[in-house]
């Protein structure tokens, strides 16, 4: 049964999964899962600001995430606070601030759960337009900075010494992440965005022999998780955002099965 809302949900989820694949790989390579969490949690503050100023939610979330990304970028340059503690502080403070602010806004009727775990079945046409517009933008920019970003991921000093500009590249990557958070909030919610980034990439690692193939495989797995999760949620009436994440996790578990031992690149 393919109701129109269901097709829209599928399309939206696929659009987000396509960008989550390559971005998620960088999150895993750079050990930035906690950073992703922090950005995602700050998205709730973005919602509050969007509601207060009657901005489009996606834009509000992007602005706040981008601001937090820039803040972290500059704070991390000062090694006064370990970045792990810094992220933990920012991540949960942002989430708590968002929850408190939302609770104070008694005149606005919102379902908190939709923000925390996503509301993919309510995706409308303008949401689709925003998602695909942003996804194309993210992919194009990521394609342009792919090689320098990979070099900066391996070693910043090396990239800098050999004539690249890793500081600029890293900054652009942070902004792409903020953009990705903004479009995926409606799909899986602030609490599960990191899962969509990290799980398909982690699964892809066991199957890939190069960074580019890993990104492509992660994208494929992300798309498959969205499709499987949404159909499962339709079948068993389970919450859709969490179902997508569960589907991704099941694929990760499957990749651990010994069948993979005889597959390509399984030496690792």
């Amino acid at each position: 049964m393919l109701n129109d809302f269901f097709v829209r949900a599928l399309l939206a989820g696929v659009g987000v999964a396509i960008v989550a694949g390559p971005l998620g790989c960088f999150i895993v390579w750079r050990r930035m899962a906690f950073f992703g969490d922090t950005l995602a949690h700050s998205a709730l503050l973005g919602v509050v600001i969007a509601l207060l100023t009657e901005m489009h939610t996606t834009i509000g979330v992007f602005l706040v995430s981008a601001l937090v990304a820039l803040l972290l970028y500059f704070l991390q340059k000062k090694p006064s606070l370990s970045s792990d503690a810094l992220l933990g502080l920012m991540s949960h403070s942002a989430l708590a601030l968002g929850l408190v602010a939302l609770a104070f806004m008694t005149w606005i009727r919102v379902d908190l759960l939709d923000f925390l775990f996503g509301d993919i079945l309510s995706v409308n046409h303008s949401d689709l337009l925003v998602i695909y517009g942003s996804a194309i933008l993210i992919l194009v920019v990521l394609g342009i900075i792919w090689h320098p970003l990979l070099a900066a991921t391996v070693n910043v000093d090396l990239a800098r010494a050999e004539g690249l500009n890793p500081a600029r590249t890293n900054l652009i990557f942070m902004l792409l992440m903020a953009c990705m958070i903004a479009i995926s909030m409606k799909i899986v919610g602030v609490l599960l965005i990191t899962a969509l980034l990290v799980i398909p990439a982690a699964t892809a690692r066991r199957l890939a022999s190069g960074p580019e193939t890993m990104a492509v495989i992660a994208t494929g797995l992300g798309v498959a998780s969205v499709v499987a999760g949404l159909y499962a949620s339709l079948e068993w009436d389970s919450p859709s955002g969490p179902s997508i994440v569960v589907a991704a996790f099941v694929m990760f578990l499957l990749s651990l099965l010994p069948i993979g031992k005889f597959g390509k690149g399984s030496k690792l």
Binding site: A151, V154, E162, L164, G210, L268
Partner: peptide, 19 residues
């Protein structure tokens, strides 16, 4: 220089890292 295990990288690809 240490390369994280999560990054699949063959020697051939390492060679072309910065250009």
């Amino acid at each position: 220089l240490s390369i994280d295990w999560t990054l699949p990288l063959m020697v051939e690809r390492l060679m072309k890292l910065t250009g």
